[in-house]
Design a protein around this nucleic acid. Structure first.
Length: 328
DNA sequence: AAAAGGAGCAACCGCTCTAAG
DNA sequence: GCTTAGAGCGGTTGCTCCTTT
C-alpha cells in the first residue's frame, strides 16, 4: 500500500548546483517534462533529492524567470501586496509572473524591509521616491489601514466563496485576463522559450569548461550568467516584445496581443501540440490560486494601480490604501 | 594588504495539504 | 480508510562576495 519510499537520504548531494547538473536536469525535463520528480534523480543519475531537483527547476531553471534588478514598480507591487497578504510569497509571486517566491522573499528581506525601515525612521510625510509606506502615516494610521485591508480581504473571500454568486471568481473574464497564469497559452512561444533555456545552459557549460579553475565561484558566476542569458533569450525568443523589464506594461496590458511572453505557466485547457516541450509547461504546476483570498478585489486594486502607475509613478500605495480605507 | 563584518542570495529545512496507491 | 510520496510554502541557514576598518 501507499507509494514506494521517497529518495533515500543516503548519498544525496547538497549545496550549490553545478552547470553540469543543471544541464542534466534541464535535458531530462525537456524530454520528459516536469513532474514525477521522484524519478528524476534515478533516471538522470543526479545525486540530488527529488525535492532539490524540483526546487532547482522551479526557482532557477524554469524558463521565463527574470532575476535581479527589481524595477521600482515591482518594488511597489511587492510592498503593496506584502501589506495586504503578509508574507505569502507564493501569492505575491503569482502577481509577478517572472519572479519566484524565493526571489521575492529574498528581495523583501534584503532590500525592501530595510528600505521601509529607512523611510520609517526618515522624513515624515510623503516620500520623494514614490515609495509610500507605513512611515508616511502614523503607526496607528498604518495599522488601521492594514486592518482595513484585512477586512477587505475577508469580505472578498466570503464573496468569492459564496455559492450564490452567479459566476465564480475564477470564471470571471476579468480574472482570467488579469491573472498571468490564466491567460491563454502560447504553445509555440513556450516551446521556444524552453528550448532557449536548454541552449543557454549548454552554452553555459561550454564556457565553464573553458575555464575549469575555481569551479565553485565559476559555477556561481555562471549561474548568474545563465539566468540572465536565459531571461534575455526567453524574452527574445518568445517574440513577446513587451519585456517585463519595461515595467508592468506587459503585465497589465493583458489585452495586448503580446501577452504571450511569460505565459508558459498558463492554465491552458488546450491539449493540442502536446509535444514534450509543450507539455513541460502545460504540466507545470502553478501557485494555487484558490486560496488567494481577496483575488478579485486585489486584481482590481492592483490593476487600478497598474494603470495609475502608467500615468503617475508616485504615492501609489498610500493612494490605494486610502481608497480601500474609504470602502469601509 | 589583510581581517572583520555585512549584504545578498541559493539552497535547505520542516511543516502542511493533497492525492495516489 | 490509512499510509506515504508529491507538491507547495515560509522560514532559516550558510556560503560567497563586497565593503569597511
Amino acid at each position: 500500500m501507499g507509494r514506494p519510499p521517497c529518495c533515500d537520504k543516503v548519498g544525496v548531494k547538497k549545496g550549490p548546483w553545478t552547470p553540469e547538473e543543471d544541464i542534466i536536469l534541464v535535458s531530462y525535463i525537456q524530454e520528459h517534462g516536469p513532474g514525477n520528480w521522484r524519478s528524476v534523480p534515478t533516471n538522470t543519475g543526479l545525486l540530488r533529492c527529488s525535492k532539490s531537483c524540483r526546487l532547482r527547476w522551479t526557482n532557477y531553471l524554469r524558463p521565463g524567470i527574470k532575476r535581479g534588478n527589481f524595477t521600482e514598480q515591482e518594488e511597489k507591487m511587492i510592498i503593496h501586496l506584502q501589506a495586504l497578504l503578509g508574507n505569502r510569497w507564493a501569492a505575491i509571486a503569482s502577481y509577478l509572473p517572472q519572479r519566484t517566491d524565493n526571489d521575492i522573499k529574498n528581495y523583501w528581506n534584503t532590500h525592501l524591509k530595510k528600505k521601509l525601515k529607512k523611510h520609517q525612521t526618515g522624513v515624515d510625510g510623503e516620500n520623494r521616491d514614490g515609495f509610500s509606506s507605513p512611515q508616511s502615516v502614523s503607526k496607528g494610521q498604518w495599522e488601521r489601514r492594514l486592518q482595513t485591508d484585512i477586512k477587505m480581504a475577508k469580505q472578498a473571500l466570503s464573496d468569492a466563496l459564496s455559492l450564490d454568486k452567479p459566476n465564480s471568481l475564477t470564471d470571471s473574464v476579468e480574472f482570467k485576463l488579469s491573472h498571468p497564469y490564466l491567460r491563454p497559452s502560447q504553445s509555440q512561444s513556450q516551446s521556444s522559450t524552453y528550448a532557449s533555456s536548454a541552449e543557454n545552459i549548454s552554452r553555459l557549460l561550454q564556457n565553464w569548461m573553458k575555464t575549469p579553475s575555481k569551479p565553485a565561484t565559476t559555477a556561481a558566476a555562471h549561474r548568474e550568467n545563465s539566468a540572465e542569458t536565459m531571461t534575455q533569450n526567453s524574452s527574445s525568443s518568445t517574440g513577446g516584445g513587451a519585456s517585463f523589464a519595461g515595467g508592468f506594461d506587459s503585465f497589465f496590458s493583458f489585452n495586448s496581443s503580446n501577452s504571450d511572453n511569460v505565459s508558459h505557466e498558463s492554465v491552458s485547457a488546450s491539449n493540442t501540440n502536446l509535444t514534450p516541450e509543450n507539455s513541460v509547461f502545460q504540466d507545470e504546476s502553478k501557485p494555487d490560486l484558490g486560496d488567494q483570498v481577496p483575488l478579485k478585489l486585489i486584481e482590481k486594486w492592483l490593476l487600478d494601480d497598474g494603470s495609475a502607475q502608467a500615468h503617475e509613478e508616485e504615492d501609489l500605495i498610500s493612494m490605494s490604501l486610502e481608497d480601500s480605507a474609504g470602502l469601509f
